[in-house]
Amino acid sequence: MKSYFALVRGSFMAIMMYRLSFFFTVIGNLLYIVLLYFLWSSIYRGVETIRGMSFNQAFVYVALAGSIFTMVKTWADWEISWHITSGSIIMDLVKPLDFQFYFLSQTVGFMAFNFIMIALPSALVLLLFFGADVEMGVGLLFLPAGLILAFLISFAIDYIIGLTSFYTESIWGISMTKEIITTLLSGALVPLQFFPDAAQRILRLLPFQAIYHIPLTMLTAPNLDVRACLGLLGTQVVWVVLLFLAGRLLFTRASRVLMVSGG
């Protein structure tokens, strides 16, 4: 456990070394919120609610989706792919650490940094300067757990994508496809409520909405009760377990390829 903690601390420190880059990250995220504000203002020009969502709800939803994006973007797929194609994976495999948890702990540092330095300040700016409101209900109590589970799901997907590098060199294409599918079908760009009803029914069966739509529901849906929240968390837990197991299964198969072909 201690060695994993050292990895977390290391990745956190590494980011702090970059001075100006940090300021640009903050500015970038603020500007993004502003652009979204303009876009959604013009979408809501002249109407009160669309598909049952008020402007405030929809704006908070997509703006905070941006914050969640910075948190759950692990880059683990690129990282793992780089380790595999460069051959340095051999060095990872001889370490007495579990491969999946090794990469997980490396990304936790980034996640913590992005949460504290980007997601949280963006959310505060949103509440203080844009006059946006979140639902002050039980949903907020479940939010921390919801966010952590969202991060784990995102990592588990990135991990699986990264492992495809055992079979093909084209991580760019696969990763971009994953990226677009994840953001489009999860509510990261448009609230799930805006999709046609038939589409919504399908999207709710996929893991992507568990990354964005579920935590954002906790923040924006009025009158959530404890049972509903537990249901949401339950859905996330199921996806975490399934995707982590899938990743481990794929690794066992893929590393056999490595043993045979010699990398």
């Binding site: 601390r9 956190f12 420190m13 702090m16 070394m17 001075r19 940090f22």
Partner: peptide, 8 residues
């Protein structure tokens, strides 16, 4: 860690 923050 503290030094890295002050370096900002």
């Amino acid at each position: 860690l503290g030094g890295a923050i002050r370096d900002l």
